[in-house]
Every structure is written in structure tokens, then in C-alpha cells.
């Protein structure tokens, strides 16, 4: 009788282990945000001329992109086991693995690598220009390093004033583009600050478009 009791208990445990939801990143609460501004356009150079003259004037300038924006910051959170009423059975302190940014709620179960056509189909302004998609996401396909998704993707590398390599991957859920920033805990940002993630995302400023874009942020913890 004892043996039979033990077998029943084991079955119950197994059933309950399968009554779970598929793993997916969780919505990230933004605890603070700060707009660090944009690169200021240089002042105009001047040339004075007289009629009848032809003057050689060579020009040099660095110009701000109007096709991309940057996002960086810290990640903190916990992994929990709880019920539908948010009662917590157990909690673990987590650190970030990836930060996901998407304009719409992703269909996580369909997440795959985004092709250039996927991205340019949604963000048409990234199809042209010296800062277009293909000239930005120049890193070859590699594992995104997720513990949830087995995916490889090409990537863009943003700058660090230290030795941190900041990678942004482009993903696709059959409808939406999802950008994923690889977390490098306590890394050095482009400006020398200490952050956990830094990623590049599209922003359409062509034709004088000043409409702000709202991004949904999700985090995958490890």
C-alpha cells in the first residue's frame, strides 16, 4: 500500500508540472527615464563672395541620424513562482539576460530571426540612406543568448567608451519587429556610465516627422 501511495503522489506532481504557461519574457516596468538629447547640428560655415567670382569651398560635417534612437539603462527584477491571484510561493533574485523592445505586444511563441525585408517592410525609412538597416545591422548571425528562445540573428553593435560590446538583435513574430538588447551587467555605456543594456531602435524622423513612438519593453532574466 505504501508503494501505491508513493506512485500516486509522483503522478500528481508530474501533472502539476505540466500545467504551466510557456516561458516568455515579462513586461518591464520603467522605473525612471531621462532623455539625454540629440547631437547638435553644427553652426553654418560662411563664405563671402563678389559677383563674377567662382570660389572653391570644401565642406565637412557630421550630421545626426534621423532614422534611429538609442536606449540604455539598468535591469533588475525577480523570478517568481506564484498563482493567478499573484500570491507568491517562491521568489528568486534575477539579473538581466536580454531586453526586448517592440511597438506592439509580441507573439512570443512565433518569435524568429527578422530578415532585412521584415524590418524594412515595417520601418520603410530604414530601406534607404547611409544609415539604413543593412548598414547598421552588420554583425553576422549568432545566438542571441536567450534561455527561452533558441534563435540566431544578425546584430548591430553600439559604441562603448570602455570595453563592453553592446549588441542589438532584430527579431520577428510574423507581424512585428522585436529588437533585443543583450544585457552585459555593469557594462560601460557609450558615454562612460555604468549600465546593464544598451540598444539601438528605429525612429522615423524623415520628412520632418516629430511624432514620438511608444515602445513596449520586456526583460528576460537569468
Amino acid at each position: 500500500m505504501k508503494t501505491k501511495t508513493m506512485m500516486v503522489a509522483l503522478i500528481v506532481t508530474l501533472v502539476s508540472m505540466y500545467a504551466v504557461y510557456a516561458a516568455e519574457p515579462g513586461g518591464a516596468t520603467v522605473t525612471s527615464s531621462q532623455d539625454l538629447g540629440e547631437f547638435s547640428a553644427g553652426s553654418a560655415g560662411t563664405v563671402s563672395i563678389e559677383a563674377g567670382n567662382v570660389t572653391q569651398a570644401n565642406l565637412e560635417a557630421n550630421m545626426s541620424t534621423y532614422r534611429w534612437s538609442g536606449l540604455l539603462g539598468n535591469v533588475s527584477g525577480s523570478i517568481q513562482l506564484g498563482d493567478g491571484s499573484s500570491n507568491v510561493l517562491f521568489t528568486w533574485t534575477g539579473s538581466g539576460r536580454l531586453v526586448y523592445a517592440s511597438e506592439a505586444s509580441p507573439t512570443w511563441g512565433s518569435l524568429a530571426d527578422a530578415s532585412q525585408a521584415n524590418v524594412e517592410g515595417v520601418y520603410t525609412h530604414l530601406a534607404t540612406g547611409s544609415d539604413n538597416y543593412s548598414l547598421t545591422f552588420t554583425g553576422g548571425s549568432e545566438s542571441i543568448g536567450s534561455g527561452i528562445f533558441t534563435l540566431s540573428s544578425d546584430f548591430a553593435t553600439t559604441l562603448s567608451s570602455g570595453a563592453t560590446t553592446w549588441k542589438t538583435y532584430s527579431l520577428w513574430d510574423t507581424t512585428n519587429v522585436v529588437f533585443a538588447g543583450r544585457v552585459e551587467s555593469a557594462g560601460t555605456s557609450y558615454s562612460g556610465t555604468t549600465v546593464d543594456y544598451q540598444m539601438i531602435i528605429p525612429e522615423d524622423g524623415t520628412a520632418g516627422d516629430t511624432t514620438a513612438t511608444t515602445w513596449n519593453l520586456y526583460a528576460e532574466l537569468v
Binding site: 518591464a28 522605473t31 531621462q34 517568481q80
Partner: peptide, 10 residues
């Protein structure tokens, strides 16, 4: 799985 707080400095 997760609810994470992300301090985003945009």
C-alpha cells in the same frame, strides 16, 4: 517567469 524593473535612460 519574470516581472522585471527596467530603469531605462533613453
Amino acid at each position: 517567469l519574470i516581472l522585471a524593473a527596467v530603469m531605462a535612460m533613453a
